[in-house]
Amino acid sequence: MSASPELQREMLRQMQTIRRFEERASDDYQSGAIYGVVHCYIGEEAVAVGVCSALKDGDQIISNHRGHGHCIAKGADLNRMMAELYGREDGFCKGKGGSMHIADFSIGMLGANGIVGGGLSIITGAGLAAQMDGDGGVAVGFFGDGASNAGSFHESLNIAASWKLPVIYVCEHNSWAANTAATMTHGAADVAGRAAGYGMPGIVVDGNDVVAVYDAATQAIARARAGEGPTLLECKTYRHRNHTERPGAVDPRPASEIAAWVARDPIPMLLEQLKQQQGQFSDAEFQAMDDEILAQIEASVAFAEASPFPAPESALDDVFAD
């Protein structure tokens, strides 16, 4: 069953929330309030939202270096997210992780990860735990086409298929591994084709069509919950921004390629679909939704600014658990 109009509106709201969060994160990174590095998810929102909308509470996800979108789609609190980016005490990681290690374990978001491919085996382990728990939970690993060339991808998918683990491997194929084109590093256009070699379904979907992503994820998740094993779900998408928000970094991607994908921006695409569904949505309603989102983002920044920096000596805390 496909997404109801109500769910589509909710998905639109989440996608726009990610968009506005990322715009603000980039701005505040440029102004110096956010440190280190920020990787924006703008343009890829339909993947995180489409997949996470098909999950239940208790299901677990893991992210990569571009993790804000996954965190928001899984339902993380924007205030604590922004506080983490600001390096503050009330951030999810008490200021120890920042953008690249954003995580909220309480909602099953097992963290962003600075190592490309690093989270794939960890989420496979979460899938093993879900299988052993036996209550129908699933685990979802988000990664890019770059990670699909790492050994951990091969090792993890092979084990998951061998053990029929309830894991959905979501490849966000944006055609660029940092600054290197997939055409230079992949012998085949589709990563999903590799799934056959592991003994699992490999599905290619338009990653900018949130309803298509949701439908494909729903099927893969149902399969996993039924004990039939993992799926490799490849979502073709694109990041509108450079690899990172670092000022002065050269974007090697052709302008025509970027423009073609921006013209297929997943948010206007969904908005258009909703407007075409008679009486489901209007520009005014979207404007009101966006105003509400912008107010939430503003509130998250206020929350972050009000949160103290962690005491320097707290750097010694949490090396080990009790």
Partner: peptide
């Protein structure tokens, strides 16, 4: 066999699987 797993010779993956299982309530 559910608790005593024979893994492929893939140390990177089964070490990471242990981390994921540990973070999900198991003690690998």
């Amino acid at each position: 066999a559910a608790r005593v797993r024979a893994t492929p010779i893939a140390e990177n993956a089964f070490s990471g699987i242990a981390i994921g299982a540990a973070g999900s309530g198991y003690r690998p």
